[in-house]
Design a protein around this nucleic acid. Structure first.
Lengths: 214, 214
DNA sequence: TAAAAACCTGACTAGTTGGTCAGGTTTGAT
DNA sequence: ATCAAACCTGACCAACTAGTCAGGTTTTTA
């Protein structure tokens, strides 16, 4: 038996990095960038503060690393949709994806929301530009659907804002929801909320909900 | 001519207080509670920092004063609705009110959102309790509407979350919206978005949009 | 007009925070 | 066994922040 690592082992560095990232996500999500404390992140990760700074040069670089991970979550099947696809299926799937992110990556959603509310001071121009281009592309597809008679006349921007606003709400306002309902939302609640939302958005667009999303 | 103030005059104290509150709203909205700097609030208000602390004992008491103002905004005509009212009109009006708050009190909406995302650390139990009771009352009315056949079977919680999520989005994500649309939303845009949202929510509930909200 | 109340502020302080540094130990390849 | 790379951390510090305080000025009241 050899003591050297094989490909499946994780080095202690990799383990600590992921510990730190997880701890930092919680801390940033519940206090914002300026409000987050490096010492608190270290405590959550069960490491001395100095060790956190050993893996991540600074609080800022740690935050940017997290932000980069979050951006990757934003990708979805909607990105490649074209006028030839069925709007009902594409939108229903997109809503499902967004709701799933709210459920399984609540802290990421919160950090993103905080970033935007604060005026996106840490999102670089590259991301903003990329995001604008993505939006322009999606708006174009929606407009083509309308022109092709596959979707009723509607404002594509508001349509997307409605999807974002509703699905984000379940992550960002989870505290309020828990308070008001008396308990936090479980897997089943999320499934119901997703179906509810798909029905709302699709009906609002005069679309029929595909059987597989009912 | 007398130099003493008559009833219409505002004392210098009242003027400064409102200057400070306005400045603090901006600062808290764009940096959160922990991230906000008293010095920065003073600069925005055009006053020395010591003067800010003269009017408000501490950063916390200033924040709480703002939070109290915000809570007053949350009142709406929906609060007194009963089963005898028309759900279509009540909901359309409620959506209109919410959208108007997003338009005219964007910073307040943002501060509220930040507070909730961070787990509502500064909202006292009295408010939470009051809010829960309000929610229970509204849920009851919606359920009565359903029982009376005035509204189709639907989950009252999700209905309200959908209204909140969508309307808040226009305030909280204003930065993103401006970025994506190339310009910020004006009065007319808000009116269109409001009509769009009323149509969406009401159609989703099988309700007809009342003529005065079209 | 005189006293009281309200308003103002520069200089200071105690506490907190992100980050450095030097001197360690452990791990892995050869 | 050796050596370099990776990992670890207590002690420390410079910068910043909310808040104090004492000694003012201005405004209002009687």
């Amino acid at each position: 038996m050899t003591t050297s690592r094989n490909e499946k082992d994780v080095t202690i560095g990799e383990l600590n990095r992921s510990k730190i990232l997880r701890a930092a996500e919680e801390e940033f999500a519940s206090h914002g960038y300026k409000g987050a404390r490096v010492q608190q992140i270290a405590d959550r990760a069960g490491l001395p503060k100095t060790n956190v700074l050993y893996y991540f040069k600074s609080k800022e670089s740690l935050y940017l690393a997290i932000l980069e991970n979050i951006m990757r979550l934003w990708n979805s099947r909607f990105d490649e949709a074209t006028v030839h696809d069925d709007p009902a299926r594409v939108l229903a799937q997109y809503i499902t994806d967004k709701m799933e992110i709210s459920r399984s990556h609540g802290n990421s959603s919160k950090i993103f929301a905080l970033e935007i509310i604060n005026g996106a001071p840490n999102l670089n121009d590259f991301f903003k530009d990329q995001h604008s281009k993505w939006m322009a592309g999606r708006v174009a597809v929606i407009n083509e659907w309308i022109k092709a008679g596959k979707l009723k006349q509607t404002n594509p921007y508001y349509l997307l804002y409605n999807i974002w606003g509703t699905s984000q709400h379940y992550a960002d306002f989870s505290t309020q929801i828990t308070e008001l309902q008396g308990s936090s939302m479980g897997q089943q609640d999320f499934e119901n909320a997703t179906k509810n939302l798909i029905h709302l958005i699709l009906t609002g667009c005069d679309l029929t909900v595909p059987a597989e999303f009912r």
